[in-house]
């Protein structure tokens, strides 16, 4: 959970929710242990089929010492989101609190958003054939819960709050720890900020699904009709 007071289950949906002007997340890479609790919670929460990820964790080999760094990646809910401009059917929309959402009833799966996203955060859901991505668990946050990944993280590495509210603990945490966006040079002004982000991570974090090793990514995919993932 984030630093804010957890909402008791019995009060979910009863308490008036605070209006956020810029829903955002701070990911503390110094706390992440690469346990994939966030990926699993997200998969479970949204029934994401095999081969697709709304949230994923990449394992990166440090260039200076033989250890790994862990990099959770999700939709960055960019303030200048190129996916919004790319979509010809306006299936991607910005919510009142700044998050970017996909209207599945308007998506035709033309992949313009997939091509436009600098973070490879949008994928085609193999069951629906439509674009899919993280939306900060709108259905949870609107009743006062944290997104599933934030709730599942055992190390408090993911924190959800209002980045525009200077009083919000998450905003203050970002400020104190010097959180900054990933791939800043894409110029999309993300609302997911990273603590402990180092420059070497950007070239290392190519767009495989989970693990980056040398120059090649291992993409786990489940071909139709097979039970074991293939490499």
């Amino acid at each position: 959970m984030s630093d804010s007071e957890p909402v008791p289950w019995e009060n979910v949906g009863r308490e008036p929710q605070k209006a956020r002007s810029r829903a955002g997340m701070v990911v503390d890479l110094e706390r992440c242990i690469g346990c994939h609790a966030c990926s699993v919670a997200c998969k479970t929460e949204h029934s994401v089929p095999l081969g697709g990820f709304r949230t994923r964790v990449r394992y990166l080999e440090r260039p200076d010492r033989p250890t790994l760094a862990f990099l959770p990646l999700l939709c960055m809910q960019c303030q200048d989101a190129p996916c919004l401009d790319a979509c010809p059917t306006e299936a991607l929309r910005r919510g009142a609190d700044g998050r970017v959402e996909i209207d599945q009833d308007r998506c035709c799966g033309n992949k313009a958003c997939v091509a436009a996203c600098p973070y490879q955060a949008i994928f085609i859901n193999s069951e629906t054939g439509l674009a899919d991505k993280c939306d900060f668990c709108t259905h949870r946050t609107e009743v006062g819960l944290d997104p599933a990944c934030v709730a599942a993280c055992p190390c408090d590495a993911l924190r959800f709050g209002d980045l525009d509210d200077a009083q919000d603990p998450v905003s203050q945490y970002a400020e104190q720890r010097g959180a900054r966006p990933f791939k800043e040079d894409a110029g999309t002004r993300p609302s997911v900020l990273y603590v402990g982000h180092e420059d070497w991570m950007e070239p290392a974090a190519k767009s495989g699904i989970q693990i980056s090793r040398e120059d090649r990514d291992i993409v786990y995919e489940q071909p139709v009709g097979e039970t074991e993932p293939s490499r």
Partner: peptide, 26 residues
């Protein structure tokens, strides 16, 4: 044929996003 949901191709003609070059192109 390239659409992942080809039966929804009509949406590109019906819905219009002025910011999208694909919308204009179609």
């Amino acid at each position: 044929a390239d659409l992942e949901a080809p039966s929804r191709f009509w949406m590109i003609l019906v819905y219009f996003n002025p910011a999208s070059w694909i919308s204009w192109g179609v």
